[in-house]
């Protein structure tokens, strides 16, 4: 009945060369992202020679790490965790408890911080069954429950409860700074990998539609749990580094909802689903915060509150999308 196979089979002229162009194009974007990561590491590696305020540099790096964590969870997988700071705090306490109670060294302590946050992520992974705002608020509740657990008098023997943590036994400004730079490098590299790997494509497929993703052979539960764990590990690593740098802290310092909020805003403002977005978002907004927010936080809060409204309504895909469209128009 239908015998026009000839038009459907056979070599399609131009396919091979088109494929090569695609490959090249993809490489160019990959090269760009990798360059961003390298420049970033370079800037912070030598940062202390042109910026005396080390804590500012550390805060920038930590927020970049957290914003990238949000990027992995929301930008790639579609889950927006309002309680993301829970993993940050878990990492900070993993570091603090392992070094001060179990007397391990600083580097095993960093690993312990990551492990603790990963364990918390696995315990919370049933939350991934929830969708949209349910998930967002449930994760917030989980983070709030976690801080109450850590600061509870019953936990005082381990976490020192409300009296906070002290890491003075491993205090080392130089090594903790370098570790934070390395952590930022690892996190950025992971996002570059996600953006350019089939795994990253699978995540974005799940974000777009779960049923179609499953019918494409993707193990939706396993893939999204893995992404959730990666995202939590990033926050845990950031928390552990931060704890090492500041050395003394209280539960409220590392479980502050403001930290989650900042990370989310920075990521959204810069543009999720990209490598450069969360970095740019952090530099711009944390820069503004550093200039005016610390002295008059309420005005900064008003600005970013209104900024969220403007982003959502007018640039839901962030600065990076604006940049891309301007760049696209120029190069045409």
């Amino acid at each position: 009945m239908l015998r026009d196979d000839e038009t459907l089979v056979g070599e399609i002229p131009g396919t091979a060369s088109k494929d090569r162009v695609t490959q090249l194009f993809r490489n160019r974007s990959f090269v760009g992202d990798a360059a961003v990561a390298l420049v970033l590491i370079g800037v912070f590696a030598f940062g202390r020679s042109f910026e005396a305020n080390t804590l500012l540099l550390v805060n920038l790096m930590v927020y970049m790490i957290l914003a990238q964590g949000i990027n992995v969870s929301y930008g790639f997988t579609g889950y927006l965790p309002f309680g993301f700071v829970g993993f940050f705090g878990a990492g900070a306490y993993g570091m603090a408890v392992s070094t001060s109670k179990f007397h391990v060294g600083a580097y095993p302590g960093l690993v312990a911080g990551v492990v603790v946050s990963v364990v918390v992520a696995l315990i919370l992974s049933p939350l991934l069954r929830l969708r949209g705002s349910y998930f967002a608020i449930a994760s917030l509740a989980a983070a709030e429950a976690l801080v109450l657990l850590v600061s509870n008098p019953s936990a005082q023997g381990i976490t020192n409860g409300a009296y906070g943590a002290n890491l003075s036994s491993v205090f080392n400004p130089g090594a903790s700074y370098v570790s934070t730079v390395v952590a930022l490098g690892l996190v950025t590299a992971a996002v570059v990998w996600l953006k350019h790997s089939p795994f990253g494509l699978a995540l974005r497929a799940i974000k777009a539609d779960r049923s179609s993703a499953a019918m494409s052979g993707i193990n939706v539960v396993r893939v999204r749990t893995f992404a959730w764990v990666i995202s939590a590990a990033m926050a845990g690593l950031g928390g552990a580094c931060y704890a090492w740098v500041i050395s003394v802290f209280y539960p409220g310092d590392v479980f502050s909802l403001t930290t989650s909020v900042f990370a989310i805003i920075f990521a959204l403002f810069g543009g999720i689903g990209t490598v450069v977005g969360p970095i740019v978002g952090t530099v711009v907004l944390y820069g503004i915060y550093n200039a005016i927010g610390i002295t008059v936080p309420q005005y900064f809060q008003l600005i970013y509150g209104l900024l969220i409204v403007v982003i959502v309504l007018f640039v839901p895909r962030g600065l990076a999308s604006l940049g891309a469209s301007v760049f696209g128009r120029m190069s045409r």
């Binding site: 089939p198 494509l201 699978a202 497929a205 777009a208 539609d209 019918m215 494409s216 993707i218």
Partner: peptide, 22 residues
């Protein structure tokens, strides 16, 4: 049909080709 929005047409097919083990 619910294509994977945000992905190109080719990436849509690539994802299924890779994960579907076809």
């Amino acid at each position: 049909p619910k294509p994977f929005t945000g992905l190109t047409v080719r990436q849509n097919v690539e994802v299924a080709a890779r994960y579907g083990k076809g």
